[in-house]
Simulated scan of single mutants.
Amino acid sequence: MVLTTPNPPPSSPWSSSSPVSPLPLPCLALPDGSFFPFPSTTSLPFPNAAGYHGSSSDYLIFTVSGDVSGDGYYLLVNPFTGDTVRLPSLSRIRFVVNSGMALPWRNIADDQRAPYGETTTVRKVVMCPGGEFVAAMVGDGKLGKIAMCRHRHGDEGSSSSSRWVMSGHDAWRWFDDIAFYDGKVYAVDDAGSLFAMDTGVDNLTGEPEVAWAKIVIKVSDDSPPARRRWRKEKAPPSMRYLLVSGGKLMMVHRAAKAMSDGGGTKTTTKFEVFKFKADLVSPRWLKMASVGDDVAIFVGRWFSFALRVSKYKLPGNRIHFLDDDAFRRHCCPDDKFGSYDMADGKGARGHLA
């Protein structure tokens, strides 16, 4: 998903193909390299979409292959303003083992606990307010870990301007999502447990500080690892998304459910929304019955956000979602998006023209 700006400049390749509204409506980016301006159901192709990898807030993420002169990299492009951010590839990672101490540069596959190297890629990118720090969730679609790099404005043309830094102590976990909140990187795993990692600059190296991601909320899963892996392959898909709304960290849990309709069994999607309660004694998730009559939440694997919708004359208390990855394969392969009404617990799916 990507949130657009209302008036693309004349030099933008989208200026002639993207509808312009008096207020910035969200534009939803699909995994196949196309987009549709919400709430329209007509999809349009990305101009120059070769190498499209995902989206992060106002940016589209592209992978750029390396050549004999150097490594490839990730390029973030705002298609409306022309702003770019260049991020390093995962070909070299600095594994920090203690504050100020690190192992030599190495490939991520040199970590024997990591997923197989060729399947390990950036699964999500988030930028902290101000844009100095960039966090990425890297992994193979199941196991994941947090990597950090420091983006310095003006470094876009240098392939060696920054490197990913990762904790050498932290485990590879079943992370679903990450988000910046209150000066930290938060991550949620597939059971709903919440982890937090402080952000800062290592005074010795000038790189981001990375430390062991501390567990903030523990949700137990007592299944043995072998049984857990089997269950993940067989059970209907489930996903947890993190976002910040109204200054609060929120988690949206999405799960496919098999339901009987009298004439057989059909698969539907159910949602639950939780708010993070930062209690010093017992931090916890608080379930929310509503997200507000003036608020709609948009969730996707690459980016999730909340938007006040009354000024667009759109209904609130809704969750809008993309049917990507496992959900699209498991539920309705021909549907690209859907909406869920928090008031009555009913959902509707849509097919793009």
Rank of each mutant, 00 (worst) to 15 (best):
M1V: 11
L3Q: 12
P13L: 04
S15H: 11
S17T: 15
S21E: 14
P22E: 15
C27F: 09
L28D: 00
S34C: 12
T41I: 13
T41R: 12
S43T: 13
P45H: 08
H53G: 03
Y59E: 01
T63K: 15
S65I: 10
T81P: 00
D83V: 08
P88R: 02
V97H: 14
M101D: 15
M101Q: 15
A102V: 08
L103C: 09
P104Q: 04
R106S: 14
R106M: 13
I108G: 07
P115H: 04
R123V: 08
K124I: 00
M127P: 03
G131C: 04
V134K: 00
G139I: 02
C149H: 03
R150F: 07
S158L: 14
S158T: 10
S159C: 12
S161T: 07
W174P: 09
A179K: 09
G183T: 00
Y186H: 08
Y186L: 06
N203R: 15
T205L: 05
T205V: 06
E207A: 10
V210P: 00
A213F: 04
I215S: 10
V219P: 00
S223Q: 15
R228H: 09
K234R: 14
S238W: 09
V244Q: 04
S245C: 12
G246R: 05
K248G: 08
H253Y: 12
R254C: 04
R254Q: 08
R254Y: 04
A256Q: 07
D261S: 12
T265I: 15
T265D: 14
T269V: 13
K275G: 12
A278S: 12
V281N: 14
S282I: 11
K287F: 06
I297Y: 05
F298Q: 03
G300C: 03
R301S: 11
W302H: 13
F303H: 09
F305S: 02
L307Y: 06
D323E: 15
A326E: 15
A326G: 08
R328W: 08
H330E: 09
K336H: 12
L352M: 10
